[in-house]
Design a protein around this nucleic acid. Structure first.
Lengths: 129, 129
DNA sequence: CTTTGTTAGGAATATTTACTATTTAGGAAA
DNA sequence: TTTCCTAAATAGTAAATATTCCTAACAAAG
């Protein structure tokens, strides 16, 4: 899969891919770094950032910003997110039925390639307290 | 207005308010800092961050993140944003007609207090090139 | 005048990018 | 297959940027 996207196959890339690509999940660069440190003690943040950036460019990951950091999402299908303002949990939301048919008029002459939506509030757990 | 929101009236706060509240606009903490430095040479980033944060808590500003930084928006009405991925221009989008009536089912037990949408792509100018 | 909130400034923290010498993947040649 | 070559990738360090923390001095408002 890496080769089909024009990326050389290295142990570091395989480790990153094995960690986050198999199932939909949300990770930050730091989370990837700290996890891979256990199996790859010498891996560097630089490599993590480069790898995640390349994966995004290749369409293997989606990226968005929330709570001051960049989050990478291995669910590359079009979908929205909800984030708890207290516990910071992030969940995927399947696209609505009549999703994004109407692009606003003001964007007629834009070349839009992405629409992202984030719902913020308290998750059920945090709302109880 | 500051007093009605429980904030003491200081020259710094007046300067920030006079700069960004009169008309809808998007600013970063750094932009405010650099502009106010001309008239208030001793003002500090700390004060800018505190003031913008208080204005947001008071409902005088809205906040969102894009391109790695926090942007404060003096248009506090519900609306979406579009951002050019090349020149980084940000524009406001008036809410759609049949806007946000349907909150996703998965959020039934959440207490949602905000929904934000960001469209990304090339603005007309940048698309030409 | 007094109290309490605010400010400036510097330090601390965190995220992300830049730079560079070393190493390595992968294809070409033997 | 094995060897060699080159461009790309990596680790490590430093730097740029954004944001928060801390504290002493200060000022708003009663």
């Amino acid at each position: 899969m890496l080769r089909s996207h024009g990326l050389r196959v290295t142990p570091q890339r395989l480790a990153v891919a094995a960690l986050i690509l198999p199932k939909p999940m949300h990770v930050t660069a730091r989370m990837v770094y700290q996890t891979l440190r256990e199996t790859h003690p010498a891996i560097s943040m630089n490599t993590i950032y480069l790898t995640l950036g390349q994966f995004e460019s290749s369409g293997l990951l989606q990226r968005f910003e929330i709570n001051g950091t960049t989050v990478f999402d291995s669910n590359t299908a079009a979908h929205d997110h909800a984030c708890c303002s207290r516990c910071k949990a992030i969940i995927d939301l399947s696209p609505q039925q009549q999703e994004s048919p109407q692009q606003p008029h003001a964007l007629a002459r834009w070349h839009i390639d992405r629409e992202q939506r984030i719902w913020s509030g308290l998750c059920p757990n945090c709302a109880k307290q």
